[in-house]
Design a protein around this nucleic acid. Structure first.
Length: 192
DNA sequence: TCGAATATATAAC
DNA sequence: GTTATATATTCGA
């Protein structure tokens, strides 16, 4: 039976957690205000998707996560375990990984690029198993307002505030909840 | 503002 | 299986 490992790290009042498989591929990540919330979320994810439960251990990925949270670029390529997401989600996440740091795109733009619709794109982005590693925080509303962001499964104003901070640390200029349109990035490339 | 339209995912029969 | 319900949306009246 395959063994999965979970580890957490605290950096500047935020807890980061990663769930990895036996080949060191990232199954899921999470971050939030307490280790309890982060661990509970990842354990819940593992119980829902994995046959065996996760064991705790030290691991380097949460450190990498903290760097990303700080607006830095990840030093090594991250291997993702995509076994537990749908084909449609994979297509959406492939687009997210192309959004340059310091830029944003919209649910509607992604949906046009994939010949889908905005709502399902929202659903896929919302269920991103790898926050920070796959930059779902770079997807905003059609009018370039910051929009929603959920942390460890909970949606609310603190999420939006966190999303805004992430974008600002990546160099996106936000004023009164509105993102400067120079930061817009079109996945279809017509107008980059 | 408010409601319809839209395509996925999940829950409920 | 098949049908309802819920979405981190968007657009038009």
């Amino acid at each position: 039976m395959e063994e999965f490992r979970l580890s957490t790290l605290r950096s500047e009042n935020t807890w980061f957690g990663c769930l990895v498989d036996s080949r060191d591929r990232l199954v899921a990540s999470a971050f939030g205000p307490s280790s309890k919330i982060v661990q509970a979320h990842l354990i819940s994810y593992s119980k829902q998707h994995l046959a065996s439960s996760a064991v705790f251990g030290e691991y380097s990925l949460p450190r990498e996560m903290a760097r990303l949270h700080n607006g830095r670029t990840s030093s090594n390529p991250i291997r993702l375990n995509t076994d537990f997401v749908s084909d449609f989600q994979r297509r959406v996440y492939a687009v997210l990984e192309k959004i340059p740091k310091g830029r944003v795109t919209t649910y509607g733009s992604i949906s046009k690029h994939l010949a889908s619709a905005p709502r399902p794109v929202g659903g896929a982005v919302a269920s991103n198993p790898w926050p920070l590693f796959v930059p779902c925080h770079r997807v905003v509303n059609f009018d370039l307002s910051v929009g929603n962001f959920s942390m460890c499964g909970s949606l609310g104003q603190s999420g939006t505030s966190t999303k805004r901070s992430l974008l600002e640390r990546e160099g996106v200029h936000v004023r009164d909840d509105q993102i400067d349109r120079s930061a817009f990035w079109n996945p279809s490339g017509n107008k980059d």
